[in-house]
Design a protein around this nucleic acid. Structure first.
Length: 426
RNA sequence: GGAGGAAUGGCAGAGUGGUUGAAUGCGGCGGUCUCGAAAACCGUUUAACUUUAAAUGAAAGUUACGAGGGUUCGAAUCCCUCUUCCUCCGCCA
């Protein structure tokens, strides 16, 4: 959520920011509501001050035994209360409208986020390795997985519905190996591992920005509860309504969770294989940082995600997303894209974002630093995939496929696969 | 699922209708004392918002004692609902 005060004091800047994200905001309405909000607060508070003073006086009159005087004042206060009630009603209506506008506005892009209208203008900033070369015709992971007997999408559909996966044998083992490898890697980097709930309430989803605007993307469990679309949601909300100490920052958290997404509006896209499922596994990184440190933390986090790919020997590139392509809560985002032979292209496998104080304001996550400033400030929150497990498996299967249809297990994963070096037909 | 109890400032813990934003203790910060430290003593110590003044320090006001609603001229204090935690019983991976 944007700072109401900042928005009303910098409407031109907000205009530019919204335009750069291909969206608009009700500038005139917002400014008028802000104005009347402050006027109403003034009126309410003035009356409340009067009431407080009179009530005190009634108290002392009663003690002094001057009942008639006290009775008169009572009648006056009753009138004051009626007036307060009227203004308060108006005020709550205004505040509700303001909250509605503000909670639907995306973050303002940061200074390092390049201006651009859509993903075609994204900027490649780093590349590791080269697209894998084959001396045979490479297959897609869904065909390989089928032939190896490690995927069963038909039965997954029978059990649940389309866009769910059923992994068997070494497929299931590979999923587990990847999760453990990633968690071990990140905890060695210094991340603290968590095991969070996979269901969250509405306040939590509001805190990270999924609600109220993107409810249709979420799986609804029960009234007010949702399956998490990413561990970012729960890891970030660990500190909701808390005030942290400067000396604790930055905090680096990681967790493995299943992730659930409705994928409304993506019908027909990535319909085959492990790329776009309603349920998928992900190891997530979340950082809480001081404002002046968050850009560095984003760079570092992006490198850390890259190291996971490098350790697995998967060619990838890093993209700096333009203003028109970054997500709702982000002020800057680096995507990591892994080489996927079946797409003959790079495909997103991690997204690392700096949300600035946008989520912290929604979730009320602040910190104190008495040596540098008085009072409290909002922290900056960051999140990144480290990595999406299903897409990593797809990338491994495709990039490590052999002419005979088997899959070589990346060296780093062999210990996690119980010494198995090749996945062959089951 | 059944029966009880609790929820107050960083922590502990007073406070059952009228200068209580909140006693007291601990912790934190500043000071006195000391070569220095400890002890002792003195002072200080919440947040959000509004306005004014200005620039990171201030003044005035409003709100906040788990959350929401109600009673009242006035509520931490009375009533209702919800949430969370604790104890006991039942059930269970």
């Amino acid at each position: 959520m944007l700072d109401s005060k900042f928005v009303r004091e910098n409407p031109d800047l907000v205009d530019k920011a919204m335009a750069s994200r291909n969206t608009t905001w009700p500038r005139q309405e917002f400014l008028e509501l802000e104005q009347s909000r402050r006027e109403l607060i003034g009126q309410v508070e003035e009356l409340q001050a009067k009431r407080n003073a009179s009530s005190k006086e009634i108290g002392s009159l009663m003690k002094a035994g001057q009942k008639d005087e006290a009775g008169k004042m009572r009648e006056e206060v009753v009138k004051i209360n009626e007036a307060i009630e009227g203004f308060n009603f108006q005020l709550s209506e205004v505040e509700e409208k303001l909250h509605h506008i503000l909670s639907g506005m995306p973050n303002i892009p940061g200074e390092h986020c390049p201006l651009g209208k859509d993903e075609t203008e994204n900027v490649e900033v780093f590349k590791w390795g080269e697209p894998t070369q084959f001396d045979f015709e490479p297959k897609a992971h869904w065909d390989l997985g089928d032939e190896l007997g490690i995927f069963d999408f038909e039965r997954a559909s029978k059990i649940a519905m389309s866009r769910f996966a059923l992994l068997g044998g070494l497929g299931a083992k590979l999923e587990r190996a990847l999760i453990n490898f990633m968690l071990d890697f990140l905890t060695k980097e210094g991340f603290k591992e968590w095991w969070p709930p996979a269901i969250a309430n509405a306040d939590t989803l509001f805190g990270t920005g999924q609600l109220p605007k993107f409810e249709e993307d979420l799986f609804h469990v029960d009234k007010g509860m949702y399956l998490i679309p990413t561990a970012e949601v729960v890891l970030t909300n660990i500190h909701r309504d808390e005030t942290l100490s400067a000396e604790d920052l930055p905090l680096w958290y990681t967790a493995f969770t299943p992730c659930f997404r409705e994928e409304a509006g993506s019908a027909g896209r990535d319909t085959r294989g492990l790329i776009r499922l309603h349920q998928f596994d992900k190891v997530e990184m979340v950082k809480f940082a001081k404002p002046e440190d968050s850009d560095n933390q984003l760079d570092h986090m992006t490198k850390q995600a890259g190291l996971v790919l490098e350790t697995l020997g998967l060619p990838y590139r890093i993209i700096n997303l333009v203003t028109g392509d970054i997500g709702f809560s982000a002020r800057q985002t680096f995507d990591l894209e892994v080489w996927l032979p079946s797409y003959n292209d790079y495909k997103e496998i991690s997204s690392c974002s700096n949300c600035g104080d946008f989520q912290a304001r929604r979730a009320n996550i602040r910190y104190k630093d008495p040596e540098n400033f008085k009072g409290t400030r909002y922290v900056h929150t960051l999140n990144g995939s480290g990595l999406a497990v299903g897409r990593t498996m797809a990338a491994i299967i495709e990039n490590y496929q052999q002419a005979d249809g088997s899959i070589k297990v990346p060296d780093a994963l062999v210990p996690y696969m119980g010494g198995i070096e090749y996945i062959t037909a089951q």
